Measured scan of single mutants.
Amino acid sequence: KRPMNAFMVWARIHRPALAKANPAANNAEISVQLGLEWNKLSEEQKKPYYDEAQKIKEKHREEFPGW
């Protein structure tokens, strides 16, 4: 399985609240909304998620060399 990128790290945190706020929305609609919200963030706001994604990527590389 591929390691999460910065957007996926961010979305994992924000998806539950968005789903709760929009109970009639299906998963595809929630994903679209998450994408729109992510694109509104500044690079500075995204930086912690890029940092976390890098850590996940490095850990994945250690656990699965050659993947």
Results as ranks from 00 to 15, higher is better:
26 N>V: 04
15 R>S: 08
66 G>S: 10
50 Y>A: 12
51 D>E: 14
53 A>D: 08
13 I>C: 08
25 A>W: 15
26 N>Y: 02
41 L>P: 05
65 P>Y: 12
60 H>V: 11
37 E>C: 09
25 A>S: 08
5 N>R: 02
14 H>S: 08
58 E>L: 10
3 P>T: 13
49 Y>R: 00
58 E>M: 13
20 K>L: 11
57 K>F: 08
8 M>I: 08
8 M>E: 15
27 N>V: 07
63 E>R: 05
55 K>P: 04
38 W>G: 02
65 P>T: 08
59 K>S: 12
42 S>V: 00
27 N>H: 07
66 G>T: 13
3 P>H: 13
65 P>H: 06
60 H>C: 14
53 A>P: 02
51 D>L: 11
15 R>A: 09
61 R>P: 10
51 D>Q: 10
7 F>W: 03
55 K>T: 13
64 F>H: 14
58 E>F: 06
45 Q>P: 00
33 Q>I: 15
63 E>T: 12
25 A>T: 03
55 K>M: 04
18 L>P: 02
18 L>V: 13
25 A>R: 09
63 E>V: 07
36 L>D: 11
37 E>H: 04
55 K>Q: 11
47 K>L: 08
17 A>V: 15
19 A>K: 12
33 Q>W: 06
64 F>Y: 14
34 L>S: 01
63 E>M: 10
33 Q>V: 07
46 K>I: 03
27 N>E: 14
56 I>T: 07
54 Q>Y: 02
31 S>R: 11
51 D>R: 12
43 E>F: 06
67 W>V: 14
17 A>M: 15
28 A>W: 06
43 E>M: 08
53 A>R: 03
67 W>S: 13
20 K>A: 10
61 R>I: 12
3 P>Y: 11
45 Q>K: 07
16 P>A: 07
50 Y>W: 04
58 E>Y: 04
27 N>C: 13
27 N>I: 07
36 L>K: 14
46 K>E: 00
41 L>T: 00
51 D>N: 10
17 A>Q: 05
4 M>V: 08
66 G>H: 07
40 K>V: 03
35 G>L: 13
46 K>Y: 00
26 N>H: 05
65 P>N: 07
21 A>D: 10
5 N>D: 03
10 W>V: 00
45 Q>C: 07
25 A>F: 09
63 E>H: 08
64 F>P: 13
8 M>V: 06
7 F>R: 06
38 W>N: 01
51 D>F: 06
2 R>L: 01
18 L>S: 03
17 A>T: 08
8 M>K: 14
65 P>G: 10
11 A>T: 07
